[in-house]
Simulated assay, not measured.
Amino acid sequence: MRRVAITLVAALCLITACNNFLAKPRSSEQIIPERTTLRVGVGNPIDTAPLRLAVEDGSFTRAGLHVDLVEEPTPAAGLDGLARGNLDVAFATDVAMFKAAASGTALRLQAEAYTSTPFTMSLMTLPSSTYTNLADKKTPKIAVDELDDLGALAVRSMFTTAGGDPAKIKFVRYPYASMPTALRDKSVDAALMIESFITQAQQNLGARVLADSSRGATMNLPMTAYAATGIFAEANPRTLALFRSVLARAQQRAADPTVIRQALPRLAGIDEATADLVALGQYPISLNGVRLQRVADLMRTSGMLSSRLDVVSLLPKDDTF
């Protein structure tokens, strides 16, 4: 019995290590990086707020790493920057990263950026709209920021949960900033928005939530992450381990929503009143294989991936130098 118990404990430890990588980040004081400068792409200011704040307050510099933040103008720019060698670490949606990995791009995930919570990602309509029940329209026109990315995945899952047929949805691409106009002129029936666009649409247009994504398969769904190429990760394991360690502490500080809300006016260009109202998601402090596998499996069932992607294979190797 004792041997069985020991074997069981060992197995559980192995599972935990795979599924919750870096649950206790290595101290940055123990890491001497191969290089002292890292070019990191950043996008949505809310998703990337902890990273921006860690650069701003000198956390990376004190650890011996200079991080140059490179603004990504479009959702696809981060992965393009990696491919072109303009970035060492890119920010992108998990969906975009998993599509790239499934297509043969050698990626190594470095950190989860942001996970949804209630009302961080919602389908919005105007108060005058007669569209009040998600499954009422058989062939709805839905605005998404990208035609085959996180928004489309979330909407398909939301329709399935509501009893509708996701194959009947007509997606129309609009930048988030243009979605209110598309709703006003009736170019679309609803728009899949994220914060702070949700709160701004509510303030400026009286927009209402048709359906929130935090239900069914998309409840608390991982949204965005940071990744390096496999080649860069193999050549710079200590540099990336240091990056992960400092970022993990920054994400941990971001568990206090006041930290993020106070920073949003300067990071996201929104006023303090809006910053106080936005729904904030979660900033994971570790890479969790089980949590991320949910996204890849949902992509598989929705047709975005032709076969199952093993997300654990994209996690960093154990930090033994």
Rank of each mutant, 00 (worst) to 15 (best):
M179W: 10
M179I: 03
P180Y: 00
D185F: 09
S187E: 12
S187C: 03
S187V: 10
V188R: 00
V188I: 02
D189G: 01
L192A: 12
I198T: 12
I198S: 09
I198W: 13
I198C: 08
T199W: 09
Q200P: 09
Q203S: 14
A207D: 14
A207G: 06
R208I: 14
R208G: 13
V209C: 09
V209G: 13
L210G: 04
D212R: 00
D212F: 00
S213N: 04
S214A: 15
R215M: 04
A217M: 03
A217K: 10
T218V: 07
T218D: 07
M219T: 12
A225Y: 12
A227C: 11
A228K: 12
T229S: 09
T229G: 08
G230A: 05
I231G: 05
F232A: 14
T239F: 15
L240F: 15
A241T: 07
R244V: 15
R253E: 02
A254L: 05
P257N: 05
V259T: 06
Q262D: 02
L264A: 01
L264S: 09
P265V: 02
R266K: 05
R266D: 15
L267T: 07
A268R: 04
G269E: 06
G269V: 04
I270G: 00
D271A: 00
A273G: 04
A273T: 10
A275K: 00
A275N: 01
D276R: 03
L277E: 11
L277T: 15
V278I: 11
A279R: 14
Y283E: 12
Y283C: 11
S286R: 08
L287H: 14
N288C: 12
G289L: 13
G289P: 05
V290C: 08
V290P: 12
Q293G: 10
R294T: 10
R294A: 03
L298D: 13
L298V: 11
L298N: 11
T301Q: 04
T301M: 07
G303I: 13
M304Q: 13
R308I: 09
R308N: 09
D310S: 12
D310T: 07
V312C: 11
D319C: 15
T320E: 14
